[in-house]
Every structure is written in C-alpha cells, then in structure tokens.
Design a protein around this nucleic acid. Structure first.
Length: 392
RNA sequence: GGUCCCGUGGUGUAGCCUGGCCAAACACGCGGCCCUGUCAAGGCCGAGAACGCCGGUUCGAAUCCGGUCGGGACCG
C-alpha cells in the first residue's frame, strides 16, 4: 500500500506526499539512513524532532545481525527500533557488491580504481542469474541472496517500502559488464515483483523497482522502460551514477522523463545539500543518504555558506561564538554554541555526536521544507541560487 | 659541602648503556583534506626539535668524556 499525490509542480520539480501504513512523507523528502535499525549516533526521536518523516534500514545487515526472526519476534522493524514513521528497507545488493570492493561509495561513485589485476567483478562478487553469493563480514559464513528470498526477508522485517534486490555496478568496469548486469537486474526486478505479490504483502508494504544502466543513456532508457512496465509503486534510480555530480544530473535527466508522473521517484544514496535541490529540480521526490549522520560522527556540521556546506568542528573556523549554522532552528543550536560543540568534539566527548547528528538531520529536513515551499511558490530556481550562493 | 638522577618539536616520552641505518621516532595537541543505497564515533596528509649550553674524543656524537647552567632526589 502506497499512496502518492502530487500537490504542486515547478518545472520538472514536484511537491507531493507519500502515504504509507505508517504515516506520510512529504516530498521532496528524505530517508535518514539507519542501516542496522539504528541512526548511528542518535535516537530516532532526534530524527522526529528534526522533522524527518522516514528512515531506511538495510535488509542485508539485519539479515546478518540480529536476523529476520529476531526482528519479526520483536514485532517487526518499527516496533523493534522504536520508530513509527515511514520506514523503508534496502535490499543489500549494494552491500553484497561492496564486500569485495571494500569502500563501497568510492567504487560506485567512481573515485576508486579496481585493483591492477583487473579481475572480473562477476567472479569477485559471485553474482549469477540465480542471485548473489557473499560472505558475512561478521563471521565469514557464506550466504546466498536471491530476489525471492530477499523479498521474503524484507517482508518479515516489515518496512513500509521495500527495494528490489539488485547488483550495483562499479564505475571502472567495461560497458558490456554494466549492460549484462542491467539486463539481469531487470530480470531480478521481475522476479522480485512476482515474489512480492506472491507473498501477499501488498496490503501494508510497497515495492520500489530500481533503474540501472550506469552512465549509459541507452541502457538507462531501456532499464527505465523495463522497470516502468513492471508497475512498481515507486521507482528508484540507482546503480553507478558516475564520477561527478554532473554525471548523475545527466542520468536523472535521462530517466525521470520516462517515469510515470503518479509514482514517487527515489534517488539512491544521494543527499548533500546541493544534491537535494538539484535532484528536486529534476523531478526526484525522495533521497536517502548516510552522509548527515556519518559526518556528524566525524565532527562536521552541515551549514550554508561554507565550502561543501560543511563546518569542521575541529577547525579554527568552528571556534567562533554563535550557533553551528546561522539561523538554524535545531535542538542543538537552540541550546549550544558552536564553540561548545567544537569543544566537545575536540575533547572527544561522546555528546558531540548526537548533537551534531541532530543538527545535520535538521539541516537536511529544513532544506527540504524550503524546497517544498519553493515548489509551491514556483520559485525553486531562486532557492537553488540562494543555497548555492557563496559555496565553492 | 657531598653523592646521584634528569634536561630531545606545544605537551609527554623513545633513542643514549652496545657512536654511524637519527637533520631524529611515537602519542597527544595543532593545521588541512577525505568520508553520498554506512563493515566508517573513521581515514589521509602536513607544520613543528639540528637533541640545555661550551669544549673535547672520533672519519663520524642526541648517543662517549670534561666543564657549565637549570630542575629534582638523597646524605651531611
């Protein structure tokens, strides 16, 4: 079950609302990443205070620990983790792929080269038509994911929105590899769809298909057509999005026009401040990203007007008085100065992390509130200029 | 008065006995960079001391010897 209503449009941008069995998510909106059923560094109530309406967990990680049975026995993911808002689960295809390559993000985002040995990625991750074989990073045990068993896994976890099992391709791979993977991902998408329906889950859960195709226009178009045909409740744009932001803008520009207007579009793994605006401008409805909570753990606060929208609390720039970000209305900034948070981070006081994480989540949520209002007012392009102003 | 210990970057130490691989290491601190479907409360890079001072031995001394200054301990 998934409702999606478009309330306003501004060019390609849409403002809308997704309705699920656990409440609504206003769009453009954001899924905070809670991979192992936890927002790293903060309590889910902080996300709620920050105005976030959705979280996304990872079925792969939860499968390994604590296991689907444990989550189901606890009454499902919502009850297990104490979050009664919108909840999604990713399949874990991205992780299966990353086990071999280590630094997932570097690889997918194109910042890292494959080993000089030039080994065949298919061998490396052991993906075949049936599914993907991988080793647990916890105990080395071998496991196999298939579209069917992954749907069963995500069903028992019980999130509102599920993502199809897919294989994410690295950037530095021959186009022919991406093509084969994209075609197989489409076959897997069909199997996921059938398994999902066969499990009778559609009452309370919705399934998103994912458009693959790397940085190749024709592959993206073919994949989009294939995914649309399968009638998913929502559509993700995933796989390798290229090396630069311009690359993913291009991918989104290829794909979005081919998608039905009445289905929400999710851009997987993207969520830096400028990305949210650029994505919305191109017709993206939802985002998810580990960045806000991760950089919080590493001592950085999202702010406007600084390079890459980041203030490093360990830097001299963070020594000044005042809040983390000018005009920030988060719970952290309401109570503490940047000098204090900087002190906490430098002194390695654990409190620094939840304070920064909540700030970063609020920054993200607040920016999207502005994006939604701008769409309603037909001035998203102006907001884009304001946000990007003075930022290198 | 005597005996002994110590003196290396901002801080704390290692090296000294068994000179050269030490224009010097490590930790913290400091500065910067990197972390976008999280194996990340993490990673990388950089600045910073010719080793208290003077003299000697030696091809060569942070390292050995003498003196001196400073800090400390103990004995009288």
């Amino acid at each position: 079950m998934l409702g999606f209503t478009v309330l306003a449009q501004d060019g390609a941008a849409r403002r809308g609302v997704i309705e699920t069995a656990h409440g609504r998510l206003e769009t453009p909106g954001f899924f905070a990443v809670a991979t192992r059923a936890a927002l790293k560094g903060v309590d889910p109530t902080a996300a709620q205070r920050a105005g976030l309406q959705a979280l996304i967990c990872n079925s792969f990680h939860l499968f390994l620990q604590p296991g689907a049975e444990a989550v189901a026995a606890a009454g499902g993911l919502h009850r297990f983790m104490g979050w009664d808002g919108v909840l999604a689960t990713d399949s874990g295809g991205f992780q299966v792929f990353s086990l071999r390559h280590g630094q997932v993000a570097d690889e997918v985002k194109g910042r890292r080269r494959l080993p000089a040995s030039d080994e065949d990625p298919a061998e490396a991750v052991k993906v075949d038509e049936e599914g993907a074989v991988f080793r647990s990073y916890l105990d080395g045990a071998r496991h196999r994911f298939t579209p069917e068993n992954n749907m069963e896994l995500q069903r028992s976890l019980g999130a509102d929105i599920l993502f199809c099992l897919d294989e994410c391709t690295p950037f530095h791979v021959p186009e022919t590899y991406t093509r084969a993977a994209t075609e197989r991902n489409l076959r897997w998408a069909r199997r996921c769809r059938e398994a999902f329906e066969g499990l009778g889950m559609a009452e309370r859960q919705a399934l998103y298909g994912i458009v693959h195709g790397g940085v190749y226009a024709e592959q993206r178009r073919a994949a989009a057509a294939g995914i649309v045909e399968l009638g998913f409740e929502g559509i993700g744009i995933g796989d390798c999005l290229g090396e630069t932001k311009a690359d993913w803008y291009q991918v989104v520009d290829w794909v979005c026009p081919l998608l039905p207007d009445d289905r929400p579009r999710h851009l997987l793994g993207v969520g830096e401040p400028d990305d949210l605006v650029e994505g919305a401008l191109r017709g993206i409805d939802t985002f998810d990203c580990a960045m806000p909570t991760r950089i919080a753990r590493h001592g950085q606060a999202l702010v406007l007007g600084r390079r890459r929208f980041r203030l490093d609390l360990a830097s001299v720039a963070a020594r000044g008085d005042g809040p983390l970000g000018e005009g920030c209305d988060c719970a952290t900034c309401a109570r503490f100065s940047r000098a204090y948070v900087s002190h906490l981070y430098r002194a390695r006081e654990p409190l620094a992390i939840p304070l920064l994480a909540e700030h970063n989540l609020r920054f993200t949520a607040r920016l999207l509130e502005r994006v939604r209002d701008a769409i309603s007012a037909g001035r998203l392009a102006e907001l884009r200029r304001e946000v990007l102003e003075g930022v290198a």
